[in-house]
Design a protein around this nucleic acid. Structure first.
Ligand SMILES: [Zn+2]
Ligand SMILES: [Zn+2]
Ligand SMILES: [Zn+2]
Ligand SMILES: [Zn+2]
Lengths: 140, 140
DNA sequence: TCTCTATTTGCAACTGAGTTGCAAATAAAG
DNA sequence: CTTTATTTGCAACTCAGTTGCAAATAGAGA
C-alpha cells in the first residue's frame, strides 16, 4: 500500500474529525486509488487479506458519506457503488458509463450535462445519469 | 377490474404472440392503469387476492420486457420498477423524479433532455436519468 | 369438441447484497 | 496509564429477486 495514499487518507479522516482506524484508512485508500466507483466487494478484493469485515466496510462508507467525503454513484441496480464526492456539485453528479460487454464502468468527468428543467413546484436535490453502451476498447 | 383495460392487455399479448393467461392479463392491466413505474410488490398489492405468485409476476415481466412491451426504470437501488416502454426511444428513457419525503415517483415525460455527448469511441445504447427532490405536494 | 404437448404456473428452497445486535477491541482525551 | 465513547467482527437476519421441479393449462391439430 502506497504511503502517500495512506497519509492522504489519514489527513481526510482528521479533517473530518473521524477516528483514524486501520479499516478506515484502508477503505479510503482503496477509493482514492480507483478512478471509477467501487462496490464493497471490489474494495474488499483490492485490500485482500487485510480487508476489514464487510460490515465494517459498509459502516465506514456510511461515515464517509455522512462526512461528504464519499457518495453513492448511480451505476447498477443490485450493488451500491462508492466513489469520492469531491468531483461533484451538491446536486449533480457526473454521468457514469457502463459497458455491456466488459462490464467496466467509467466516470464521465469531462462531458457536459445540463440539469433537467423540472416542472414548477418540484425542487431538485440531486440528478444522476447513467449510460449503457459499448466502450471504445470493446468496439475494436 | 376494468374490462377495456383487460381487452387492451389481451390485445397486447396477441400482438406479441404471447399466450394469453390470467396472470399475464392481470399484470399488464396493473401496469396499463398506472402512470408511474411499479415494483413487483406494488403490482401484487394492486391485484389483491387475485394476484399471481411473485415468481409468476417476475417471469411475466421478463416476457414483456423481451417483447418490448415493458422496461425496467432505474428509480431506486433496491427494487426494480417496471413501466410501459412505449413512451421511450430505444436509447433514451424519460427521467424519473422521486420525492425524498413522500417517496412517490413521477415520470417526467414532457421535459426535454439532450443525450450526453459521449467521448469518441463509445457507443450509447441507453441513457437514464433519475432525480431526487421534493415534489410540489410536499413543498406546500 | 377432444387430445396432446410445449408453455406456464405455484411452491419451496435458494442467492446475495446489505443490515442489525451485541460483546470484544481500541482511539484518543485527560 | 486510565477511562470511556466509538469502532470492529461475527453471526444471524432481511428482503428482492432467482431457480428447480412437479402440476396445471393454452391453444394447435385431429
Ligand atoms: Zn467494454
Ligand atoms: Zn464517478
Ligand atoms: Zn412528495
Ligand atoms: Zn416513467
Amino acid at each position: 500500500m502506497n504511503t502517500t495514499v495512506k497519509q492522504h487518507a489519514v489527513a481526510l479522516l482528521r479533517q473530518k474529525r473521524l477516528r483514524v482506524t486501520a479499516p478506515r484508512v484502508a477503505v479510503i485508500a482503496a477509493i482514492l486509488q480507483s478512478d471509477s466507483p467501487l462496490t464493497q466487494q471490489q474494495i474488499a478484493a483490492q485490500l485482500g487479506d487485510q480487508s476489514p469485515n464487510k460490515t465494517t466496510i459498509y459502516r465506514t462508507l456510511l461515515s464517509l458519506i455522512n462526512a461528504d467525503v464519499v457518495h453513492r454513484a448511480f451505476v447498477q441496480q443490485r450493488q451500491w457503488h462508492f466513489e469520492l464526492a469531491h468531483h461533484c456539485s451538491p446536486i449533480q453528479c457526473h454521468p457514469h458509463f457502463t459497458c455491456i460487454r466488459c462490464h467496466r464502468t467509467e466516470c464521465l468527468h469531462d462531458v457536459s450535462y445540463p440539469l433537467v428543467d423540472l416542472p414548477k413546484g418540484m425542487t431538485m436535490y440531486r440528478q444522476q445519469i447513467r449510460i449503457e453502451g459499448i466502450c471504445s476498447a470493446c468496439s475494436a
